[in-house]
Write a protein that binds this DNA or RNA. Structure first.
Lengths: 215, 215
DNA sequence: TAGATTGTTAATCGATTAACAATC
DNA sequence: TAGATTGTTAATCGATTAACAATC
């Protein structure tokens, strides 16, 4: 009990480690579904493309999870990572922007599996307001702040057009939102009170485009 | 002329730099639309959340782009980055998986602006095959390899369900595809002949989830 | 026990930052 | 010219990797 509390308070992991934890988790779940019970850092390294040393280092940050001479128990590993990433805790989410991408996310099964509960879409298009997509209602932007407070929303996903995203983020800073997933090419920076994580599909393609020509 | 060829051959930029180039480009275009002509590394650093030293370092890798005492000419900067990232060159793209996300991408204007031309969706669902979304036809998987060759497709975007993505990638390795954007939570590694870039929305949310609790 | 693999420390590598001379 | 900001080198920082003693 005391130990657990202590770990909870102290476990500040570097960004790259946190990102890899999702990968380990995904891979562990696939293997468990195939009835695998154990895996060594070497086999993991072959599947994931990290070095085995890095994998052991990462896991060692979470505690002594492995068995020497044998490897890692996948069930223990999976549970530990889920605990660290707070996958077991329900997180209420809204999506701002009821366009193609926003609507597509309402049907994303992976989100439910990680306990991200989408409570509403927000948009300013009066043709969309009042509709539902996959049972998720579309609400007008003016209800944003109240909704976040009332429904205890912790994370907003921004899928509006690029030129609107700064404005939307501005609005969010005046609410109780704690985290923002920015799916827009516009740069948004974390603030004192809001964690921002940005994903840009065009950036991904640009990266590939570059590497196709210079490598 | 000689110099240009030389740079083209030699400009191997580290991954983090390539990723930031997309950010610089996006921001430069926004500023140009607002009729700004120049920007200093300091102002850039405030908008993008990088240090000014890093920005100057990054740009210096592309050549001597700035004017001492004055800053960077946004038009020159924009053109240079577009040239480096090969934005001016048309890249034929296919999307594998005509689900919510795949279809959403067919309407993504940003892709066209960077000259990524979506030529087809691929799926195995007979109800979808033959349909079009935003004028993009859905084709059966068995035509994949021929289509890639005939239409000179260089990049495939994978948006199939997680358990199918390894299989799809396996198929792609037997084609002429050069780059893969993996939008699936399943890990896929670059091979000798294929550049892979992976983006996982759930990973992004997991990251936020972690940082909300430990920071 | 012998063989295998972890956990961890120390070494390496690479990326970021600080600082400032050069110069517009 | 004086002021400002770049381009670049050297210092720092942090993340990855190598190596191996501990041990299952």
């Amino acid at each position: 009990m005391r130990k657990k509390t202590k770990i909870t308070k102290k476990l500040y992991l570097p960004d790259p480690v946190v990102e890899r934890l999702s990968r380990y988790l995904q891979c562990s779940e696939v293997l468990l579904n195939k009835s695998r019970a154990y895996i060594t850092s070497i086999e993991f390294s072959q599947t994931l493309g990290f070095t085995d040393a890095q994998i052991r280092k990462d896991f060692s940050l979470l505690g002594r999870l492995g068995t020497k001479g044998k490897g890692y128990d996948l069930k223990i590993l999976k549970n530990k990572i889920k605990e660290v990433l707070k996958v077991y805790i329900k997180k209420q989410v809204i999506i701002i922007g009821a366009g193609n991408l926003g609507v597509a996310l309402t049907g994303h099964k992976q989100l439910i599996q990680h306990n991200f509960i989408i409570k509403a879409l927000f948009d300013n298009d009066s043709k969309k307001i009042g509709k539902t997509f996959n049972n998720i209602p579309v609400k007008p932007m003016k209800e944003l702040s109240d909704f976040i407070k009332k429904e205890d929303i912790s994370i907003a996903i921004i899928t509006v057009p690029p030129d609107a995203s700064r404005r939307v983020f501005e609005m969010l800073t005046k609410t109780d939102i704690k985290g923002v997933l920015n799916l827009t090419p516009t740069t948004i920076n974390s603030t004192e009170s809001i964690i921002v994580y940005s994903i840009d599909i065009t950036q991904g393609l640009d990266f590939i485009s570059y590497r196709l020509f210079y490598r």
